[in-house]
Simulated scan of single mutants.
Amino acid sequence: MAYSPERKAAVLAKMLPPNSIPLNRLSVEEGISRATLAKWRAEARAKGKLLPEADAHVEGWTSGDKLAAVIEAAALNEAELGDYCRRRGIFPEQIAIWREACEQANDWDRTASARIARETKDDRKRIKALERELARKEKALAEAAALLVLRKRAAAIWGPADGEDE
């Protein structure tokens, strides 16, 4: 069944915040299959429209939805931003947090590389210290073994020392 563009636009508007009607409920209300509604939503999202998942809460938004909201709100003044947020069912503080997250996302490689380099340097220092300690202990063990062998040889040649058991 073909639906008119006006009907399709009206149904898509019901998916937008602040309504954010879940697909199952919208399917029952409108008499349109859930699959058709999901397809319409996917097509609209591919065109760049902000259509969150069926969950009405902001937690249900994908990172793409949040990025789209940040982009849409970037050029708005304070009054327009307030109106935009009311229509979308979000808070201006959330937009600010998402914007900061987007800005930090691009620095991930640089910060991750620096952190990995620091950890690698610390690991090398720790390995070197452990190797020194192991060498010292091996040396001490070899010396103790040599003393035991010498003691046995001396006991075999001259007999046990005074106060030693045989």
Rank of each mutant, 00 (worst) to 15 (best):
I90P: 02
I90E: 06
I90G: 04
I90C: 07
I90M: 09
F91E: 15
F91D: 15
F91G: 00
P92E: 14
P92Y: 14
P92C: 06
E93G: 15
E93M: 14
E93A: 15
E93H: 13
Q94W: 13
Q94L: 15
I95P: 04
I95N: 04
I95V: 15
I95D: 10
I95W: 04
A96T: 03
A96S: 09
A96C: 03
A96V: 01
I97V: 14
I97G: 01
I97K: 14
I97D: 08
W98I: 00
W98A: 08
W98F: 07
W98G: 02
R99S: 06
R99P: 03
R99Q: 08
R99T: 03
R99F: 03
R99W: 05
E100R: 02
E100N: 00
E100L: 05
A101V: 08
A101L: 01
A101T: 06
A101C: 02
A101W: 02
A101I: 03
A101H: 03
C102N: 12
E103K: 05
E103L: 01
E103Y: 11
Q104E: 02
Q104K: 06
A105Y: 10
A105Q: 11
A105T: 07
A105N: 04
A105D: 07
N106Q: 15
N106E: 11
N106R: 14
N106F: 14
N106W: 13
N106P: 00
D107K: 13
D107S: 05
W108E: 01
W108V: 00
W108R: 10
D109K: 10
D109W: 13
D109V: 07
R110E: 00
R110I: 08
R110A: 11
R110G: 01
R110T: 11
T111K: 14
T111Q: 14
T111Y: 14
T111C: 07
A112H: 10
A112P: 08
A112T: 12
A112E: 12
S113K: 03
S113W: 08
S113F: 10
A114Q: 12
R115V: 08
R115I: 08
R115S: 05
R115F: 02
I116G: 04
I116T: 14
I116H: 11
I116R: 13
A117P: 02
A117V: 05
A117W: 07
R118N: 12
R118S: 15
E119T: 04
E119L: 07
E119D: 03
E119I: 02
E119V: 07
T120L: 08
T120A: 05
T120Y: 00
T120E: 03
T120M: 09
K121D: 06
K121W: 12
K121N: 01
K121R: 10
K121Y: 04
D122E: 09
D122C: 06
D122A: 01
D122R: 07
D122V: 07
D122K: 05
D123S: 14
D123T: 13
R124M: 09
R124K: 00
R124D: 00
K125W: 01
R126I: 01
R126W: 08
R126Q: 09
I127Y: 09
I127P: 01
I127R: 01
K128Y: 08
K128Q: 08
K128M: 02
